[in-house]
């Protein structure tokens, strides 16, 4: 559509295409694609930071060990503060989610890279995993009384059925907003960067201005990458708290 109006060739969504890496055109279930590549790189990067960084086990940490420890205690404190003390059991799970999302987001900011978390399919699986875990956990720990989460006893009796309906709807909208928030943020930021970059190519000498804009947006995107990983994780903790203590 861009060609028709102005003559630029900007394809902001091309960067999200899933491509087979080893030849071939079709993307089957077991095809090695750029998704495979970047997820593997994410796993390697997280392992480098957390496993290799902490291999010294030094009492006085080195720089890389400090990074690993800061990440550890940051997420640990978040889980403890938000989900409560008995939420610490699920800390490895939440840490895995946080590190995976954080590093996917950050690696996605490298030029020519592929952002796995910008895909609804990926974030939907992440959010669905959280949703299913939390719901199953709630029923396993509290049985049918987990349903009291939707029955707000502090409200007047007449309002309770309506509130219950709203609560149930909002409960089922959670995974939707949880996943779309992350994918949407990643997709939007990258598309904006790409659009500005396209302007830079088309404007010739005046391309300096879009390049400055890209720089600024890139900084914002760094911030957004970290914040979205944080938000995804803290919402997971909030949902976990609901499952552990449904009676508020």
């Amino acid at each position: 559509m861009a060609e028709e109006s102005g003559g630029f060739a900007i394809h902001p969504m091309d960067q999200f295409i899933v491509r087979p890496l080893l030849g071939g055109d079709t993307v089957g279930m077991f095809t090695i694609t750029n998704v495979t590549l970047w997820m593997t790189l994410t796993v390697i990067a997280v392992s480098l930071v957390l496993v290799v960084g902490s291999r010294g086990r030094a009492l006085v940490p080195t720089r890389s060990q400090s990074i690993a420890e800061v990440l550890y205690s940051f997420v640990y404190k978040m889980v403890e503060d938000v989900a409560g003390h008995d939420g610490v059991k699920y800390f490895p799970y939440i840490m895995t989610l946080f590190m995976f999302i954080l590093f996917s987001n950050l690696l996605g900011l490298l030029p020519w890279s592929f952002t796995t978390t910008s895909h609804i399919a990926v974030t939907a699986v992440l959010a669905a995993a959280v949703f299913i875990t939390v719901t199953v956990l709630g029923f396993v720990l509290h049985g049918a009384s987990f349903l009291k989460l939707f029955w707000i006893t502090s409200a007047p009796l007449a309002l309770r059925p309506i509130l219950a309906l709203i609560e149930v709807i909002s409960y089922f909208v959670r995974p939707l907003s949880h996943s779309i928030r992350l994918a949407g943020n990643m997709m939007a930021g990258h598309a904006v960067v790409k659009v500005f970059a396209g302007f830079a190519g088309a404007l010739g000498l005046f391309g300096v201005l879009p390049i400055l804009a890209v720089t600024a947006v890139y900084g914002l995107e760094l911030l957004v990458s970290v914040i979205q990983a944080y938000v995804f994780t803290i919402l997971t903790c909030v949902y976990l708290r609901d499952a552990l203590h449904p009676h508020h």
């Binding site: 559509m1 978040m78 779309i180 949407g184 943020n185 938000v231 803290i234 919402l235």
Partner: peptide, 25 residues
């Protein structure tokens, strides 16, 4: 933490509208 949760909820709705725009385009 509450601040970020609040911002995330408010922002998600903007992302939804952006998504609708993308879907339309």
């Amino acid at each position: 933490a509450t601040l970020f949760i609040g911002i995330a909820f408010a922002e998600a709705l903007g992302i939804f509208s952006f998504l609708v725009a993308l879907l339309l385009m």
